[in-house]
């Protein structure tokens, strides 16, 4: 029995030798740059010293994790991170699909090319600059928004003292910055759809909305699923510079804008401990791991080909 299995294994290796050879570069790459450093997860349980390194520093158990839980804010912060990411996934994907479909269907070549390029521009604006712009527009005394309100004889709006409005601002800013990028993936997926299907539908008299509804959208499902799964894999990670820069690290907005990454960074300003940073990262990894295992299993049950692994 055992021997049979071994035989099967070697038979498969022979059978797949070309495929395995083609995988080899990637396997080596990830072994070196990801799996070897992964041994460093151990730092999360150590008081790291330079001479002890990863392998010989004193072991402190779970002590490095404690700081996150001491003041009782971690729950709120974790929740924020989770819900922001859910919103990003929903809003960004919807907008990206919409844009991709429109871009694919419109006929004016120049218009398409130009808008597509323009929509990509925000991706290149760093968060620092976005934050500076936001402050320029939103600050109470001299921001352009309130200057306008003043000119119209309306009440000025105190953005930096109104935490709730920032959920909207952050979601919009995130969409604005990333739409160009995401649209391209969907656009290439639309381009991969068999043109004959559209021709057949046209012959059958389907109008453009029906063609989108019955051909384009279903064909995009695998892409939607895979992009969503990939985003879910980072659902407990917040883009530090986005949250930090766009809000100007404003303490009055923390109730709605604080995510795990900003929270941890702020905690470790005065005691930058490698172990504590690693502990926070591990906390996020474990949560993400749980989520992705659940959703991947669900997707797998629905359609094996759509799952990540």
């Amino acid at each position: 029995m055992k021997q049979g299995k071994r035989k099967l294994f070697f038979k498969r290796v022979r059978e797949y030798r070309q495929l395995l050879l083609m995988l080899l570069p990637a396997v080596i790459f990830f072994t070196i740059f990801s799996y070897l450093p992964m041994l460093g997860i151990g730092i999360a349980f150590e008081r790291f010293t330079f001479d002890g390194g990863i392998f010989h520093s004193p072991w402190v158990g779970l002590d490095n994790f404690k700081f996150m839980f001491l003041s009782g804010d971690i729950l709120n912060v974790t929740k924020n991170t989770f819900f922001y990411n859910i919103l990003f996934i929903l809003v960004n994907n919807c907008l990206e699909i919409l844009c991709a479909i429109i871009l694919a269907e419109l006929t004016s070549k120049h218009f398409k090319r130009i808008t597509q390029s323009l929509m990509f521009l925000p991706y290149f604006i760093s968060w620092v600059v976005v934050g500076a712009f936001a402050y320029n527009v939103l600050n109470y005394e001299s921001g352009s928004f309130n200057t306008l309100m003043e000119a119209l004889n309306l009440q000025p709006y105190d953005f930096y003292n109104t935490p709730k409005i920032w959920i909207l601002i952050i979601v919009l800013v995130c969409a604005w910055k990333n739409i160009g990028y995401g649209t391209i993936i969907y656009l290439s997926a639309v381009m991969g759809i068999d043109g004959a299907m559209y021709e057949a539908a046209k012959v059958d008299g389907a109008n453009i909305f029906q063609r989108i509804r019955h051909i384009t959208l279903p064909s995009l499902v695998p892409t939607i699923v895979i992009l969503t799964l990939l985003s879910l894999g980072g659902i407990f990670r917040g883009d530090f510079s986005m949250f930090y820069q766009v809000t100007g690290n404003n303490a009055m907005l923390y109730s709605t804008t604080d995510v795990i990454d900003t929270y941890v960074t702020r905690s470790l300003i005065s005691t930058s401990e490698f172990g504590m940073t690693a502990a926070a990262g591990l906390y996020q990894s474990v949560l993400c791991f749980v989520i992705i295992m659940i959703f991947n299993a669900l997707v797998k049950r629905y359609n094996k080909d759509y799952s990540l692994f």
């Binding site: 995988l23 740059f33 070897l36 450093p37 997860i41 940073t277 690693a278 591990l282 990894s285």
Partner: peptide, 22 residues
């Protein structure tokens, strides 16, 4: 299995210190 082998690296990472040392 291989997909998982690759994907796993996006979930867990040893952080910057061991990566830098390596």
């Amino acid at each position: 299995k291989f997909s998982f082998f690759f994907y796993f690296t996006t979930l867990f990472s040893g952080g910057i210190v061991p990566w830098y040392i390596l």
